[in-house]
Design a protein around this nucleic acid. Structure first.
Lengths: 205, 205, 205, 205
DNA sequence: CGATAAGCGAGACGGTACGTCACGTCTTGAT
DNA sequence: ATCAAGACGTGACGTACCGTCTCGCTTATCG
């Protein structure tokens, strides 16, 4: 005799269409207006949904944004380093991709907004880092695999490296100072040079 | 008819007491309540000042905070590395001081608030970095003097290092992840190890 | 082919328990909270009933109250004059009973609530008057029987008398001005003195 | 040394235009929509005024209506009996005027609304009675002067008479039962016949 | 005995209005 | 001229109920 199914409680089920419309509206308005001009009323209006429907499921703007990020409604695919035989090159390319993304004003504005949201809600910070690649599947993973393959020293402080790279990005974006493509190499070499055991090719600066 | 002396125009002069009361009130309220609960009305009330007096001189909360930072009303003395014969030790001590500061919850909250403000106003980001030591007189200067003395390589990317260290702090604080004292050494060594030409003493990770 | 019997269509019959629970909950909440804080949601919750069950059978709060009144869930037995040999005394006693009822704050509040409901729904006004005794079986009947027995003049305006007595009660209760027991005699004598042909006993004022 | 003038406190003075616009809007909307569809938002919108301006000065809809009534924005001039040599005729004419007023549907609706408001706020009941004439300057005064002139008995219960007449009006209007012109004479004679000492002329029912 | 259909509880939904807060501008009288 | 006090129009807040709807279950008659 099988276990009882976890029978769902009575009442109408949650409306998935409404949920998506809300996430979509929130994402669009955040992009257009920025975090401080983002209002629940505005989201409700654009999603053609009642305000209480939003408050029923999310308790704050920042929580809503967490779900936008998690649902990929708000930012493109996560940035992930490739895996060639050269970590430094892989990480540099990854950093360059972010630089290219961030040089677009609207993208920079979006990230600034997310940082504002992150001040309200730690989870946004986590998601934002993830989106930029600070996950075991992306940046951290690539570094760890380089450690495993011997290209980086065994005591390489993977997470500290990750944190400094992401931190440098955040700081520049908040300060609205533009990146140059050549910054990618500088940051990455600076943070990795103490750990690299052998560089596949030669390169200066 | 003689030229008019550059005499003060009529009317009461700007009230310095009011200015200080406003900066003080703003600083206190920011510390107590955080940026998003900080209101002009609240500042005016606490400073026993009319709202228009605030709007006359500052156009936004974040601008007001810039002046609070510049006037040292809001954060303790800037953090500055000492100058011993060992850069790495000096920078590590500086980082440790910040860690100690930030481990106090109220201080972390203050920095989070300032980051929120920085999203509105780039100048806050600049001031915040300054306050943490990213100035020619402090961190950057110490690194440059080490370059001059030969303790760091001539091509040491001073500003990138500075950015990554400050960035890592900001990122942790926003993410509300706690620092450990030993993080100081890790971050600093990671970011400097590619540039140090000679270590005064031996050290293990 | 025989005429279709007005046979009940299939499906569950109306749930009498639910009906009673709703009337009970509505009556209790009206007494406790007053008409303007009375909500359908509140009634449904207290009666442990779904909102649609209420809307299925009643179209508004005031209609629901009409049924509460008709079912005697909401007010005590109707007030009815006795029938002695003295109309004036009978009517006065009836009025006194109402005064005593209304001097209780909660009862006055209840009547005030019913008046608010009556503004929405004429039928509530009718029921309220009935409950206070303005029916052919009670006040009107007693007056008519006095006309029949010759104690009141043949042209006694029974309904106008009834209306003025009930009206005076309503007006005082709405204005929250307290009744005194001696008001009973004053009102009744004033309104009847033009019609009484013989008073069984003597009385002044 | 003279007493200090009650010098007005600093700050902008209350805006009289706004006050009038609010009273006007409230009166119009009450007339058009009835009390239960009357909303503060609607009043604010029609008066082109912010909601807080209403809440600054009045704490509820019913309080606002009290001021509408007191300012004569909401109902025509108070109804007042004339003073001829015949009280009964004077009071009857007064009652007839009210009947004529109330036969207009919109006026009846207005009074119903005011009764609803009166349930919230006793003061509305007082004002409403006043507006209908229950004041020392109108109905009560006319009766008292008749007592003084000997046309009514010295122990005439003036206020009870007044209450029953107004009460009868209220009750009919709430019950939405129409008045006939001949009701005026019936009510008035019924309530006064016990007190009249001499009728100037003859009258039939 | 099903099949059919209404009633029922629970509760999500799009709305409207609530009463409050802070905004940034303005007006006022005093210094 | 600047200041404090504070009223104003604006707009968003988060909450309470509205009346409707959709679920999955129960109940009762009918074929």
């Amino acid at each position: 005799m099988p276990a009882l199914a976890p029978t769902r409680r009575p009442g109408a089920a949650r409306n998935e269409k409404a949920r998506l419309a809300i996430l979509r509206a929130a994402s669009e308005l955040l992009t257009i207006q920025g975090y401080d001009h983002l209002t629940i009323e505005g989201i409700a209006a654009r999603a053609k949904v009642g305000k209480p429907t939003i408050y029923r499921w999310w308790s704050s703007k920042s929580e809503l944004l967490v779900e936008c990020l998690a649902d990929d409604t708000l930012m493109p695919d996560a940035f992930r380093p490739q895996t060639s035989d050269d970590v430094v090159a892989d990480i540099t390319r990854w950093f360059l991709a972010i630089i290219r993304f961030v040089r677009e004003d609207s993208n920079a504005a979006l990230i600034r907004s997310l940082i504002a949201a992150a001040v309200d809600n730690t989870e946004v910070a986590v998601q934002l880092s993830s989106r930029l690649g600070a996950t075991p599947e992306a940046l951290d993973g690539r570094l760890l695999s380089a450690v495993a393959s011997g290209q980086l020293a065994p005591d390489t402080p993977v997470f500290h490296i990750s944190e400094m790279l992401i931190g440098a990005i955040i700081l520049r974006v908040v300060g609205a100072r533009p990146f140059e493509p050549r910054d990618a190499r500088k940051f990455v070499r600076t943070v990795l040079s103490g750990s690299v055991t052998k560089l596949p090719g030669s390169a200066t600066n």
